[in-house]
Deep mutational scan, measured.
Amino acid sequence: NQASVVANQLIPINTALTLVMMRSEVVTPVGIPAEDIPRLVGMQVNRAVPLGTTLMPDMVKGYA
């Protein structure tokens, strides 16, 4: 099963992502693939992302 990117903490709206904010986990539904974590660093979320939430492509500005 493919691992997805999951929020390791509450990520406030418009926050630029850092490695410490994300972890990989096998979840359903599948979100952004864990191998894209390096690409996500520095990108901003367009909404608040609660701890444990799977990051979906539409949550990250410029990802989709």
Rank of each mutant, 00 (worst) to 15 (best):
R47K: 11
N46D: 09
Q44T: 11
M59S: 08
I32F: 03
K61F: 05
A7C: 03
N1V: 15
A16D: 02
V27N: 11
K61H: 10
T15D: 04
P50R: 11
N8E: 13
A64I: 12
A64E: 11
N14H: 07
V26L: 14
M22F: 13
L40F: 03
I11H: 00
V26N: 09
A34P: 10
R39M: 09
M21E: 02
V26K: 03
I13D: 04
Q9M: 13
I32G: 00
M21P: 00
V60R: 01
R23L: 05
Q9D: 13
P12H: 11
T28F: 03
M59Y: 12
N46R: 10
I11S: 00
P12D: 14
V27H: 06
R23T: 04
S24D: 06
Q44W: 13
V26E: 15
N14R: 05
A16W: 09
S24C: 08
V20L: 12
V5C: 14
S4P: 00
L19P: 04
Q2P: 15
A34G: 11
N8M: 12
Q2M: 10
L17T: 01
Q44R: 08
E25G: 14
M59A: 12
A16I: 05
M21L: 15
L51W: 14
N1G: 15
L55M: 08
E35T: 11
V5Q: 01
P33Q: 09
I11W: 01
V45E: 01
G31E: 02
P50W: 15
L55C: 03
S4N: 02
A7W: 01
V30C: 06
A48R: 11
V60I: 13
R47L: 05
E35N: 10
D36A: 03
V5Y: 01
P12T: 06
L19A: 07
V60K: 01
P33L: 09
V6K: 09
V5F: 01
G42D: 08
V27M: 14
Q9G: 07
A3P: 05
D58I: 10
S24A: 10
V5H: 00
T53S: 11
R23Q: 03
N8V: 13
L40V: 12
T54H: 12
G42T: 12
P57Y: 07
L51F: 13
D58T: 13
V20I: 07
R39K: 10
D36P: 01
G42S: 11
V6Q: 12
L10T: 07
V6N: 02
R23E: 02
A16M: 12
V27K: 06
A7K: 00
M43D: 09
P57N: 10
L55A: 01
Q2E: 15
A48E: 14
M56I: 11
S4A: 12
D58R: 04
I37V: 08
T54D: 01
P33N: 13
P33R: 11
I13K: 04
I37Q: 14
T18D: 02
E25M: 06
S4E: 00
I37C: 03
D36H: 08
P38M: 07
I37W: 02
V20H: 14
V26T: 09
P29L: 15
V6S: 03
A7Y: 01
V27T: 09
E35M: 06
M22S: 01
D36T: 11
M56T: 11
K61Q: 10
M21S: 05
T54N: 03
V6P: 00
P50K: 10
V20D: 07
I13H: 10
K61L: 13
Q9Y: 12
N46I: 13
P33S: 12
G42R: 07
V30Q: 11
G52F: 09
G42E: 03
Q9K: 07
E25F: 04
E35C: 15
Q9P: 01
E35H: 10
I13R: 05
G62P: 06
P33V: 15
A3F: 13
P33F: 14
Y63D: 03
V26W: 10
N14T: 06
V27E: 07
A34E: 14
M22G: 00
E35Q: 09
P50N: 13
V6H: 04
D36F: 05
R47D: 15
L55D: 00
M43P: 00
D58M: 09
S24Q: 14
G62A: 07
P29S: 09
V49M: 13
Q44S: 09
V5K: 00
P50Y: 13
I13Q: 10
N8C: 03
D36K: 11
V45T: 14
T15C: 02
P12R: 03
L10N: 04
P12C: 08
V20W: 11
E35F: 06
V6G: 02
V27W: 04
N8Y: 15
P38C: 14
N46H: 12
N14V: 05
R47S: 10
Q9V: 09
S24F: 07
G31K: 02
P29M: 12
G31W: 02
V26M: 07
G52E: 12
Y63L: 07
M22N: 00
P29R: 02
P57D: 03
R23I: 06
A48H: 11
S4H: 02
R39W: 03
G62L: 11
G31P: 00
D58G: 09
M56F: 05
V49G: 01
P33C: 13
A64P: 06
T53E: 15
Q9H: 13
A7R: 01
I11E: 00
D36G: 09
T28K: 02
T54Y: 07
K61V: 11
Q2R: 02
